[in-house]
Design a protein around this nucleic acid. Structure first.
Length: 267
DNA sequence: AATGGGACCTGCGCGC
DNA sequence: TGCGCGCAGGTCCCAT
C-alpha cells in the first residue's frame, strides 16, 4: 500500500543517495516482476547507464537514464526499494558504481519494473489524474462536479486524482468529516473545499513523517515510516474515535475495507 | 458512466 | 496442534 507519501519519501531518499550513479549490473531473482522488456533485454538495457533524474507521478517512481530510456517502478502492495541492499528477499538487485546495491523486494509480486523508451507513453501515465499538489481548489471542485460515484472510491481513482489509496482516502475523509459513502455530487461547496484542503494537509503531514508503515512499507534505508501513530481511523475498527470516543467502524465500499466514525462522519 | 467481479500474488489470522 | 480457507489491496480487464 505505498501511496503518494510513501513513494515521495522513497523518491527523495533516492535523489540523495543514487542520483548520478551508474548501474554496473542487474541480478534478476524473480523475472515475473519485470513487465517489459524480457529479462535479458532488461538487464542489457540497464547495464552501464547513469541515473540522470528521479521523478514521481502518482504512486509511480521513474528513473530517467543516460540512455534516454526510463526505469518505471510501481511498488503496488508490498514492493520495497532498499539501499544499500542487504540481499535479503530481493527480487531484483541493481549493482551501482559505488559498490552498493539497490534492492527491489516484493513479497507478493504485484510490483512492476519497466524499462521503456518514453515513460510519457505509458497507458498508466496517460490516464493518470492530476497531482494533488498541482491542483487548485477550483479545479478540484470542477472535477468533482459531474461525478456520480461515492466519494471514497472516487478519491482512490487514480484517473480522478493521483496518489491517494485506501489508507489516505480514509484519513482524509475523517478529517473533512465526510462519510465515505456519500455521493460525490452531494457534497456542498464548503465540503468540497474542506476536502481538498485536508487532502493536501494529510498528504503533506504524512510526507513529513515519512509515510505509514502498515504491512510492508519501509523507507529506502529499510526503516519504517512514522505516520501510523497519527492515523485517526485506518485500521482502528472498534477503537474509540479520537474526537468523540465512539467506536470506529469498518465497512466494505467498492470491495475495499473502509474505516470511519459514524458520529463524526454522518450520512 | 458506473459498478462489480476476477485476476494477479503470498502471508497471515481465524475457525474448527 | 494443524490445516484450510478467506482476506488484504493497486491496477487492469471484462461484463453488465
Amino acid at each position: 500500500m505505498p501511496e503518494l507519501p510513501e513513494v515521495e519519501t522513497i523518491k527523495r531518499a533516492l535523489e540523495k543517495s543514487i542520483l548520478g550513479k551508474k548501474i554496473t549490473g542487474v541480478i534478476v531473482y524473480e523475472p515475473r516482476v519485470i513487465r517489459e522488456p524480457k529479462k535479458e533485454a532488461f538487464i542489457k538495457g540497464l547495464q552501464g547507464v547513469t541515473i540522470k533524474n528521479i521523478l514521481r507521478r502518482g504512486k509511480l517512481l521513474i528513473l530517467e537514464l543516460s540512455s534516454g530510456k526510463s526505469l518505471a517502478i510501481h511498488l503496488k502492495m508490498t514492493g520495497q526499494l532498499v539501499y544499500p541492499g542487504n540481499g535479503k528477499a530481493s527480487r531484483v538487485s541493481f549493482k551501482l558504481s559505488d559498490g552498493k546495491t539497490l534492492d527491489f523486494n516484493d513479497q507478493r509480486l504485484f510490483g512492476e519494473l519497466r524499462l521503456i523508451d518514453n515513460w510519457h507513453d505509458l497507458k498508466f501515465i496517460q490516464k493518470l489524474g492530476p497531482e494533488p499538489f498541482a491542483l487548485t481548489p477550483e479545479e478540484f471542485k470542477k472535477r468533482l462536479a459531474e461525478k456520480k460515484t461515492k466519494i471514497k472510491p472516487l478519491l482512490m481513482d487514480q484517473n480522478f486524482i493521483s496518489g491517494i489509496g485506501n489508507l489516505y482516502a480514509a484519513e482524509v475523509l475523517f478529517r473533512a468529516r465526510i462519510n465515505p459513502a456519500r455521493p460525490a455530487a452531494s457534497l456542498s461547496g464548503k465540503e468540497k473545499e474542506l476536502l481538498f484542503k485536508e487532502i493536501k494537509n494529510t498528504l503533506q503531514e504524512a510526507i513529513k513523517y515519512q509515510g505509514s508503515s502498515v504491512d510492508s512499507y519501509v523507507k529506502l534505508n529499510g526503516q519504517p515510516g512514522n505516520y501510523v501513530k497519527y492515523h485517526k481511523v485506518y485500521d482502528r475498527q472498534g477503537k474509540p474515535c479520537l474526537v468523540c470516543k465512539q467506536s470506529i467502524q469498518r465497512i466494505a465500499l467498492g470491495g475495499r475495507g473502509t474505516y470511519f466514525c459514524p458520529h463524526c462522519q454522518p450520512r
